[in-house]
């Protein structure tokens, strides 16, 4: 039994870590701007594409990786300046539509550049190697992801709780206008948020595509949506919430992928039920349930609307 379930849990933890890194970007941006950054998943995908092209240009990997991360963060910065900043005073819906527009643009741009073909992600040595862990064979990246995720999250939490920019972020997310009156330069705070968020998405793309090996213009959409669901699940605006939500969703999704085999081997169902179809749907069902039962998520702050 354990031998059947364990590989799924293992890959669930790995995917969960990758979702967590993306989810942080969503949750930070939402915490500050109250904007669902629909383009975040596509930035994640673009980061993968940049890596493909950079490795193809013959640059050594030790140079590629930091360069990809910097470029990804730069893209996040530019997107915020071009597409969201002009709409800051507009109704919330306008900014969200702009985010959808950016997502559409990024996807089409990548479609144009790649010709809509699957791009093979370069093999990063060491983390692409195979290891055997408690009887399950997997890639090193599976083991590295959760550890790296936790290190990055701890670093981020320290940054937010103990530095000046972190304090500014907290202030802006609490009250936009008052923090402006207190002399916080909100433009730079918002830009920093985007840079951090997209940087983490870049790290996630390194890990995720090492695992899945191909990138296409639509490969950012699903992980992006799921990471967003994770952020909502954990309580949007809360970083630990997003991380926990991401791990839960990652594990649940992978267990459902193998549910047919697990249940079959446990003798509960007589034959395959094709339940793996629902691995994506389950995430969204979870989202609807959590929103219906506890709209602010697991760790979200309760807000009261004043009339």
């Amino acid at each position: 039994m354990w031998n059947t379930v364990f590989p799924y849990i293992l890959s669930g933890i790995s995917v969960g870590g990758q979702y967590a890194l993306i989810a942080i970007g969503y949750t930070m941006v939402y915490g500050i701007l109250r904007l669902i950054n629909f383009a975040h998943g596509d930035v994640f995908m673009v980061s993968g594409i940049i890596m493909v092209y950079m490795a193809a240009s013959g640059a050594p990997l030790w140079l590629c990786i930091p360069l990809v991360l910097i470029l990804t963060a730069l893209i996040g910065f530019v997107i915020e300046r071009v597409a969201y900043k002009p709409l800051r005073t507009a109704p919330r819906m306008s900014a969200m539509i702009s985010a959808i527009g950016v997502s559409y643009t990024l996807q089409n741009l990548v479609l144009y550049i790649t010709g809509g073909l699957n791009q093979i992600y370069p093999t990063i040595p060491w983390i692409s190697d195979s290891v055997t862990l408690f009887g399950a064979t997997t890639k090193v990246v599976t083991v590295v992801t959760p550890i790296l995720t936790l290190i990055l999250v701890v670093a981020l939490v320290l940054l937010i709780n103990h530095t000046k920019i972190g304090m500014a972020m907290r202030a802006v997310s609490r009250d936009f206008e008052t923090s402006q009156l207190m002399g916080i330069k909100i433009n730079s705070v918002i830009s920093t948020t985007f840079v951090i968020g997209t940087f983490l998405a870049g790290v996630a793309s390194l890990l995720y595509f090492t695992n899945y090996t191909t990138v296409i213009q639509t490969s950012g959409a699903m992980p992006g949506l799921k990471a967003f669901v994770a952020a909502v699940f954990g309580g949007i605006g809360s970083i630990p919430g997003a991380v926990i939500g991401a791990f839960i969703i990652g594990i649940a999704e992978n267990i459902i992928k193998g549910l047919d085999i697990i249940l079959f081997k446990a003798g509960i169902i007589p034959g395959p039920m094709g339940l793996a179809t629902f691995s994506d749907a389950f995430t969204f069902a979870l989202l609807i349930i959590i929103l219906a039962v506890k709209p602010t998520g697991l760790f979200g702050e309760k807000t009261t609307d004043k009339v």
Binding site: R34, I36, R92, M93, M96, L225, F228, V229, V232, D280, A281, T283, F284, A285, L287, I288, I289, L291, A292, P295
Partner: peptide, 20 residues
Amino acid sequence: PVLRLKSDYLAIATLGFAEI
């Protein structure tokens, strides 16, 4: 369940419904 939600939560829940 969904119509009780506010703007962007409603958006993401309906999006999720379409995927389901």
